[in-house]
Amino acid sequence: MTNSFLSKHIGTIAVGSGLIAASIYVLMVNVTLAHIEAVSGQIPFDMRPSGYGPIEAEALLDALGVDGRGYYLSHQIALDTIYPAMLALTMVAAICWLGRYTPNRKLFRFCVAFSAVGALFDYIENLGIVAMIWSWPEVSVPLVYAASSATIIKSVSTTLAVMLVLLMGLNWVRLSKADLHP
């Protein structure tokens, strides 16, 4: 793809990947994560932005049982393999599109970095969850803390990226209104 193609179609890429990411997110929250919570009576790892410790991890994994742990792997992790990439693509495309109207290149770079870090640590979180499920009932404490740390970093980075995109969007709206009413 050439830069002119991307420049012309970046908004379409942002909307298209955003619709895919939003659809997957709604499916995860309303189906897979809801099922995991219903089966276990516990909040899934993915939905604990402040992390968890070994006692909470053991309680969730135990409460899930064999079928619930299998469901986590086959349904939730499967969807969460696509979601981080789609969210990052959405964020970066939106940032590139809105970044054309933002004179602050540092804000642009931070936004891209937070999006990439959020996706990277979402994948690390997923690997940690898979490793905990596979090693059950012998889950190591360092593994739990590593997966929990990835969850926290993912949550913080993604939140910052979303906030920065929203700020860039508000800046674009402000500049658009200023252009209409000189």
Rank of each mutant, 00 (worst) to 15 (best):
I20C: 07
A22E: 06
A22T: 13
I24N: 00
I24D: 00
I24S: 00
L27Q: 07
L27S: 11
V29Q: 07
N30E: 07
T32K: 02
L33S: 07
L33Y: 07
A34H: 06
E37L: 06
E37R: 08
A38H: 11
V39F: 01
F45G: 08
G51V: 09
G53E: 11
A57H: 03
L60P: 01
L60Y: 01
L61D: 01
D62R: 06
G65P: 00
V66N: 06
G68H: 02
Y71P: 00
L73V: 02
S74E: 00
S74Y: 00
I77G: 01
A78F: 08
Y83T: 03
P84M: 12
P84I: 11
A85T: 12
L87E: 03
A88S: 14
A88D: 10
L89W: 01
L89S: 09
L89I: 02
M91V: 13
I95M: 14
R100C: 07
R100A: 12
R105W: 12
L107I: 15
L107E: 11
F108Q: 13
F110A: 13
F110K: 14
V112K: 14
A113S: 15
F114M: 13
S115N: 06
V117I: 14
A119N: 04
Y123A: 09
I124D: 04
I124V: 15
N126K: 03
L127Y: 10
G128W: 03
I129Q: 03
I129E: 04
V130K: 14
M132E: 03
S135W: 06
W136C: 06
V139R: 00
V141F: 12
L143P: 06
L143S: 12
V144T: 05
Y145E: 13
A146N: 10
A146C: 10
S148G: 04
S149Q: 04
S149F: 08
A150C: 05
A150S: 11
T151K: 04
T151N: 07
I153T: 07
K154V: 05
S157E: 07
L160V: 14
M163W: 12
V165I: 13
V165D: 03
L166C: 10
